[in-house]
Write a protein that binds this DNA or RNA. Structure first.
Lengths: 185, 185
DNA sequence: GGACACATGTAATACGTTACATGATTTT
DNA sequence: AAAATCATGTAACGTATTACATGTGTCC
């Protein structure tokens, strides 16, 4: 059964949810999904699909839309089993722990900046988060997703809300710290 | 000035915050940090430090603790400038958007499971999130970090809280949906 | 003195990104 | 007819992971 990467598993999931797709359509799913950190670059997807087909998770059939060559990829029984096995497997600690947040990465080194610069950075972060949150909320509200597929999108919204609240919280904390320092003088 | 990866920037930040360090100590910062998605493997860190030294962001001097060979890496002016340039640069949309959450990746494909299996998966996710959140809160409370370094840790806590609340929310939603379906029969 | 953690490093491997090449289809 | 977009793919590149090799210091 071997090991599958998250990108590979997500690809199996997309193929399961959205039926047979061409490589290009798979790419677009990743490209347009706002809550994916994968770019869906062709250099990633095309080799990945070939890989998965060689391992029998997928089969492809040539498709002729007009003159265009192309292959439609479809999940095999093996592929579906692998997807289900993953989804049914116990959630590991790493899955709960591991997150990646580039704003948090910056915040970790806030110390290197002056108080003014810190606030400027956090202000910028706050603005971006607001922008992105609005987008995500629009995606969620005016979505053609079913109630189940929406749940992932909802997670994206909730996490953005939390990140925004957090940035605001630390701006307040820093402002308070600054006031305290002033008073101590 | 070239392009630096996030891991490289984080390394500069660590070196700035914690003074001269050996490669091993840098590794441990990543390994023990619960809110980093980098493993801090030696195969990543040793070449990275060499790379940064070759590009003049760092300098190293041999250190002799007992008989042990080793090199102590220290930030140069160039390195500090690069760090500050990064921290001062406007926050980009991608930094607000891009997050990685393996539980959300799973949830996106919940549809493939039966209602019972869905709940089992979410229950497992909830338990893991509780575990990890408790750890993170302990880290935050009993921490020897200064108030500024704590802010990143706080972000980790806040995001975990949000992810946990989200998982609980979708469990409720799914339960409600299920009840509705029962009633409709 | 044996076991184990500390510490430094390299090699093989895998895989995602960027950039590029190519051609079909649609739009203007 | 030219430009833009759709679509498929490859090649070069960088870099993170895993596994391994090696040796030191410490604890029992």
């Amino acid at each position: 059964m071997e090991h599958l990467s998250d990108l590979e598993r997500a690809t199996l999931g997309i193929l399961h949810a959205s039926g047979p797709l061409t490589a290009y359509s798979v790419r677009r799913e990743f490209e347009t999904s706002r809550s994916s950190h994968w770019s869906g670059s062709s250099g990633a997807i095309y080799p990945l699909l070939k890989r998965l087909e060689k391992r029998a998770y997928l089969v492809s059939a040539p498709v002729s839309k007009g003159e265009r060559r192309g292959r439609l990829y479809r999940l095999t029984g093996v592929g579906k089993s692998a997807l289900l096995e993953w989804l049914r497997s116990p959630v590991e600690e790493d899955e709960a722990r591991l997150t990646y947040d580039r704003i948090r990465t910056r915040v970790n080194f806030l110390e290197a900046l002056s108080p003014t610069e810190r606030d400027r950075m956090l202000d910028g972060a706050e603005q971006r988060l607001v922008e992105v949150l609005l987008e995500a909320q629009r995606d969620f509200d005016g979505s053609d997703q079913g109630p189940l597929e929406q749940l992932g999108t909802l997670g994206g919204v909730r996490i953005l809300e939390a990140r925004l609240a957090w940035v605001r919280e630390i701006r307040r904390r820093l402002a308070d710290m600054h006031v305290e320092q002033e008073q101590r003088r």
